[in-house]
Nucleic acid binder design. Sequence first.
DNA 1: GTGAAAGCGCTAACAC
DNA 2: GTGTTAGCGCTTTCAC
Lengths: 345, 345
Amino acid sequence: MSKATIDDVARLAGVSIKTVSRVVNREQNVRESTRDRVQRAISELNYRPNLSARNLASLRSHLIVLVYDDPSAYEIPSGGYVIRMQQGVLRACGAADYELLIHPCNYRNRNATDKLHALIDQVRPDGIVLAAPLSNMPRIVKAIADKGTPMVRLSPGKENGGQFTVVTNDREVCAEMTRYLVSLGHKRIAYVTGHPRHKAINNRFQGYKDGLKQSGLPFSEDLVIAGDNSFNSGEAGGDSLLSQENPPTAIFTANDDMAAGVIRAADRRGIDIPGQLSVAGFDDIALARQIYPSLTTIRQPLSQMAEVAAEALISDPGDGSKLKGTSVVPAQLMIRESTGPAPGD
Amino acid sequence: MSKATIDDVARLAGVSIKTVSRVVNREQNVRESTRDRVQRAISELNYRPNLSARNLASLRSHLIVLVYDDPSAYEIPSGGYVIRMQQGVLRACGAADYELLIHPCNYRNRNATDKLHALIDQVRPDGIVLAAPLSNMPRIVKAIADKGTPMVRLSPGKENGGQFTVVTNDREVCAEMTRYLVSLGHKRIAYVTGHPRHKAINNRFQGYKDGLKQSGLPFSEDLVIAGDNSFNSGEAGGDSLLSQENPPTAIFTANDDMAAGVIRAADRRGIDIPGQLSVAGFDDIALARQIYPSLTTIRQPLSQMAEVAAEALISDPGDGSKLKGTSVVPAQLMIRESTGPAPGD
DNA sequence: GTGAAAGCGCTAACAC
DNA sequence: GTGTTAGCGCTTTCAC
């Protein structure tokens, strides 16, 4: 039932409330002995400053908002992404005594920006972490920017919308994966593209092409199949590729769901993975570790990106000095069982 | 940049701030015409009451906290659960202009309860939705109860810890699944138990036994295998069951991961599903729809449970009158491809 | 029906 | 180094 206020602490420590405030906020100019006395009073009374009072009296709210594409808009909520970002932000919040408020945003709704405005006006967060793909939608970015609330965008790929952006190296890491497949002896490496709506998807395709070029391998349209990010489209794409006269020995897909589809297609044809065919995906969804063979894939550092973003917001003194430019957090190749030496290599 | 305050609205509408407050809070005793005038001023200025000021001045914070087992404590974050609960709470919050704060809690840490206390003291939420398995840990429940913050527990099974609890009918629905299998002609129905730590797991096993009894089928220890909730333990259990002299024609597992393991084991033996063997799981994880054959399973109404819980907290007038007893939200059988008529039936 | 005054718990600005 | 004073933007109490 601890309802200790700053006055209680001040009384017990025999100082003024301002001094207590100084100690709580780690300000300078407090004598060591005074600080100790106040600290003791604080722990004795189990005092915790009321967030609302702080928020009201100061410019800081000690609140961060994470805004992301509303998963309930999808049939199968892709919880993994959201959870990982939340974890990252929470790590930063925990370290700084901040709290996290979550705000799924359905950009398809006309009133999405109104809701954002309402949120900002009501809670006055110290900052907003804006996840992809919202972070690449000018309408959403503008809605937040208009309110003047500090914001960090999380984005795959390198684009920067004028605000501080934490990005990952989608394109480079896809080139790396392609080179890795080449290093295993593969010469016919196919690619299954994803839904072209998300910018990230294009970056990945570019990376695949970069990797081929860097390895001195020719790019061939015949080895590219258009998918739509779904398991089924991966399966269909795999079928199509594997029924070619001279089928690829490796298939790289723009996401893991499609890679799982490819594996299924290969399975049904009795094609051994990785003996006869290597398969690589992108995302490192939970399934990637669970299927057989476990899937070689690429893991976006979502939680680290979110953490970096939240840290920047929290540590910014209010002048935006910590919120400039771009910070790159590299993605990681997760080499597992689905890739191996090219057959006959 | 809307920084309109209640004073601005009052001035524009030509009334006192108290009247504006009355309109905002939908209080009685405001003349229709006055209300209209105030409403117009509000929308013209785009006024939104500052949450912190409200919180400070009143007993309501318009904040709900969702507390759940910290997924980062696990190797593979089971994001699905958390996301669904968040969605449920968010539906209730959205409808009532509440905001949601999330607080993963790692009960293994000694300071978990301290963190909860700090949270409560700092944000003074109007209520806490406490998810399983935390909702069944006396230490955690007590930590919250001690602070006097209204709380609703989310729990599988029927136990009630003294607070208002939203439960699902784990046991009954498992009996229902068992009866469903019987109705397909199955007579030898095996069961793979889960990790005994979670109470829910025991309820499910009881339900299986209930279902057998209700169908007039004998319970046999030989048809029960101990698993530990993992895919691997399901695969091992499946192997063991299917190598029996007189193997079961149906296998029901305490969760979907183990069911997927059973399917794998059957697959490797060339046993057709559902032709020769029916398999049923529990949870309806994303994988359940993605594997082949798609998995018959049971879906906990997590998001509805969370919604009911949050609604109760929000609508409670503060006297706990809405926070009594138990509310049951039934789980749902998801009949898919992995179950069918018993062979030769 | 409506309004004036007090105060929620804290920080800001400035005194000392 | 430390304390005093005035508010942040609301709701509450009570007067009219």
